[in-house]
């Protein structure tokens, strides 16, 4: 039994220039790009954008090629679904529109991969709180929840081992692999849920008794908003809009 872990994509990629870009501005730029793409109804521009973003991911983003391919799987599946539905339902322009939508999915997909691999969750939450004034009660709740999530695989394994001890060992399928029966899975999920619920309750009380919610708060390590952050954000947003402008 090797220990299971959850890792955020940002911990698996070497920090680069995109990591230093302010998370809130980065998120907003991603949003502008996604919305702009909604106005494109032909496949050429999304395809070109997808190719450009791939190059950015492999160079500036330092995303390992293998990783980039793996991360594409869900977007390709979804994009292919969109394409197929359009081809089957629209007799005249189904292929054209379907390809446009699939291309859009892929382009936004790579942009999201770039965002995830360059942004640590803690930095994002701090930035949303400090730069965009999202209430601390929300950002810290998300962070605390995220910490719980990181602990879940280990909790799952411990509880599985603990329960196996009592039920008298693993049932194995014909090829000798350990099998999780339906009943066992039910018990496992139940206990994991209860244990996690209890823990989150305690985290809430503990945060409160450490003065969480008092005003004014101070900030130990401010996330700075530099001129370059904003300039880059404005540039990327303007480019996105211009690129996707319907009558260009």
């Amino acid at each position: 039994m090797t220990p299971l872990t959850i890792q955020h994509p940002s911990t698996m990629v070497e920090p680069g220039a995109l990591t230093r870009w302010n998370p809130s501005i980065k998120l907003m730029s991603l949003f502008v790009l996604s919305v702009s793409l909604l106005f494109v109804w032909e496949p050429v521009r999304p395809a070109v954008l997808w190719a450009v973003l791939l190059i950015v991911a492999l160079t500036v983003g330092k995303v390992p090629p293998k990783w980039l391919v793996m991360a594409h799987i869900p977007f390709i599946a979804f994009g292919f679904g969109l394409f197929l539905v359009n081809v089957l339902t629209r007799s005249e322009d189904g292929v054209w529109i379907g390809a446009a939508l699939a291309g859009r999915t892929l382009a936004i997909g790579v942009a999201s991969i770039l965002f995830l691999t360059s942004t640590a969750p803690v930095e994002l939450m701090r930035s949303l709180n400090q730069n965009l004034k999202l209430p601390a009660s929300i950002t810290f709740a998300v962070l605390a929840g995220y910490q719980l999530l990181l602990g879940l695989p280990r909790e799952w394994q411990t509880i599985r081992a603990a329960q196996l001890m009592r039920t008298g060992g693993v049932e194995r399928s014909r090829n000798g692999k350990p099998k999780l029966t339906f009943k066992e899975a039910g018990r496992l999920v139940f206990t994991v849920l209860i244990v996690t619920l209890r823990r989150s309750e305690r985290i809430a009380t503990s945060l409160e008794s450490r003065g969480f919610g008092l005003k004014p708060r101070t900030v130990y390590r401010p996330i700075r908003l530099r001129v370059t952050d904003v300039t880059l954000g404005v540039a990327v947003s303007a480019l996105s809009i211009a690129y996707c402008w319907p009558w260009m």
């Binding site: 803690v122 910490q147 450490r210 919610g213 008092l214 708060r217 390590r221």
Partner: peptide
């Protein structure tokens, strides 16, 4: 009672809360 990934931030959190 642990909320944050880094020890430093965890202790700083209480101090930030108290301004």
């Amino acid at each position: 009672s642990i909320t944050l990934p880094l020890v430093e931030d965890e202790i700083a959190l209480t101090l930030e809360n108290h301004g």
